[in-house]
Each structure stands twice: as C-alpha cells, then as structure tokens.
Design a protein around this nucleic acid. Structure first.
Length: 310
DNA sequence: CACCACCCCTGGACGC
DNA sequence: TGCGTCCAGGGGTGGT
C-alpha cells in the first residue's frame, strides 16, 4: 500500500525513464479512473515529460504543454515502466498505458481495487491549488513545530491524527505505527496529552522511518511495486506493523493490536506507555518499566540496529 | 467545527 | 478443489 516512501520511489524511478521522453500515445481502458478532462491531450498525449513531482502520497507529471496530471495510487495502484517489447507482468486491471516515442517503452497505470485514480489539470499551478493546497507539510521533512501546531489542540488519538493528510501529508497506516513505536508514544494517547518532547520525538521519528523505508525501496506487504516493477524490502525490518501477537523486537513484550480510527493498529505495551491525562508524573508510580515516558532524549532507548546489518 | 463511522473496491487468506 | 466469508485501508462523505 503506497505511502510516501513508495510514491517517492516511483517518482524517482519513473523520472529517470520519462523526463525528456515524449508520450506518443495514451490508451485508456477505463475512463472512470480519470477525473477532469479525459481527452488524450489532457492525459499528456503528445507532450514531452518535463518533471515528476510528489507531495505526500500524491504524484504529478508535468508535460511540455504546461498541462499536468495528478496520480494517486490509493491502496493497490501501481505506476510503472515497461521496457520496449516486454510483455506486461500482468495485463489485468491495467487502466491506462502511455507509449513513449522512440521505442522507449511504456508507462502503465494498474489498480485492481480502484481506490486510486488520475486527475487532469490545465496547469501544475491548478493542480497544486485544487489537490495539494489542503495537504499539511510533507512528512519527509515535517518539523516538530508544524506537527505540534497542527495537532496539539486535538482530542483525537495521536494515531488517528497523524493519518490526517491535512496535518501531515504522506503518513499511512504502516509508517504511523512504526513512527509511534520509534517515538515510544502510545497510539491512543490524545494529542492534548503530548508534551513538546513528544512532538519532537514523533516528528523526528516520522522523518526517520520514512527515510529508512525509502532506502529499503518501500514496503511491499500486499502488491506495491516501484517504478521499475520490483517490490520493496522494508517489510522485512518493520517493528510493529502486521506483527500483532508477536514479541516486540526491542523488549519481547507481546505486541497489542486494535482498531483505531478504523485502522488496524499495532503497538508494544512495554515500549509505548499510555501517557493518559496531562499528568506526566508516571515516573513516580514506582517500578514502572524504565525509560518509557518522555524524559528528555537522554533516556531514549538506542535505535534499533537493523539497517546497519542489512 | 471537530470528530467519527461508513463506504468505495477486489485479491488473497482462511475455513469448511 | 471450490466455494463462502472476512479482511486489508486512503480518502471522501455524510452524520453526530
């Protein structure tokens, strides 16, 4: 399921293949995945690709005519390049295909569940205005200050809050759980219960988890593939997502799993202590596990060593 | 306004 | 083997 790292990888890999290439022909198999004008020219037929951009989980392709299309992969969407004369790995659910001029292959949009889609715009400015202006800061570079100011007055559980794209764009269910684990924050903690240290750790952990996932080519839990059609590897090093009932890789406690904001959420009851009300004096309740509550960075448990070994 | 449940959709896992 | 059931969830919408 494509979140920010997966989309960014698609962007980078496709940019290598597409920028400067001309989209000679677009074939639309399913018109209803396209919103806005659905003419061939609106879908960039005849354009040379100027750039590929990303904001949060959204992708954009800008053509030489100035037109732009926005692509959202949703749950099962794939956008990938196929070499000339190569057969598609699977041709079912392929909704759009762009043939590149000069035998430079094809770009394919495939989306079995059709939660994704394509939006056409007369300009990149229009695209930004219509589709990107309501998004929060991009999660890859989000600051603690921005995250806090967008959310600290909210009564929502922090897990639900960081999935809100208008507060922070790019985090989905996988990396929300991973970031909360890394920041040692309980997913059910209300935003109002987080202190400045928590916000700092959380923002840093969001950036870190996303960067690490990007390095691993994203997560391929179900059907994600990069712009080159190859799956990612982050699922091998995930700490909590999809591991409910298994032992925590840090402390051995059995990981809990529950629905939060309609999303399956997994956390470690040992590492992620419920902060509860504004009283952060948990440390006084003697004998609680060490180094769990915020305290400053000095008490942090060392980062997991996984990436170094892989 | 803020929050939340529900819905869209289909493949894959699982049970019988 | 084959069929039925359930689950996965990003984001829009409509209800509270």
């Amino acid at each position: 399921m494509p979140e920010l790292p997966e989309v960014e990888r698609v962007r980078r890999e496709l940019a290598d293949r597409l920028v400067g290439a001309r989209l000679a022909r677009v074939r639309v198999a399913r018109r209803d995945v396209v919103s806005g004008a659905t003419s061939a020219s609106a879908l960039l037929q005849g354009d040379e690709v100027r750039s590929l951009e990303r904001y949060g989980k959204q992708l954009a392709i800008v053509g030489s005519s100035g037109r732009a299309i926005s692509i959202h992969l949703g749950m099962s969407g794939q956008l990938f390049w196929v070499a000339p004369r190569h057969q598609l790995p699977r041709s079912d659910h392929v909704h759009l295909t762009w043939t590149l001029a000069s035998q430079r292959g094809r770009m394919v949009f495939r989306d079995p569940r059709r939660f994704g889609g394509i939006w056409t715009f007369p300009s990149m400015e229009q695209l930004r205005e219509d589709r990107w202006s309501s998004l929060g800061p991009d999660a890859l570079t989000i600051s603690a200050r921005a995250l806090r100011s967008n959310l600290h007055r909210s009564s929502r559980a922090i897990k639900a809050a960081i999935l809100d794209q208008s507060a922070c764009a790019g985090v989905g269910n996988i990396y929300a759980d991973e970031a909360l684990f890394g920041a040692q924050i309980h997913p059910l903690a209300p935003c109002t219960a987080l202190d400045d240290t928590d916000w700092r750790r959380l923002a840093r952990e969001i950036r870190l988890v996303l960067r690490r996932a990007l390095k691993f080519g994203g997560s391929s839990i179900r059907n994600y593939v990069g712009g080159d059609g190859v799956p990612g590897g982050y699922q091998r090093i995930r700490q909590v997502y999809g591991r409910g009932g298994l032992p925590c890789r840090r402390c051995g406690t059995t990981l809990h799993s529950a629905l939060i904001a309609q999303r399956t959420s997994v956390w470690c009851p040992g590492c992620q202590v419920e902060t509860g009300e504004p009283n952060h004096k948990l440390s006084t309740s003697g004998g609680l596990r060490p180094a769990l509550t915020s305290r400053s960075s000095s008490s942090r448990i060392k980062r997991d060593p996984v990436p170094a070994s892989m």
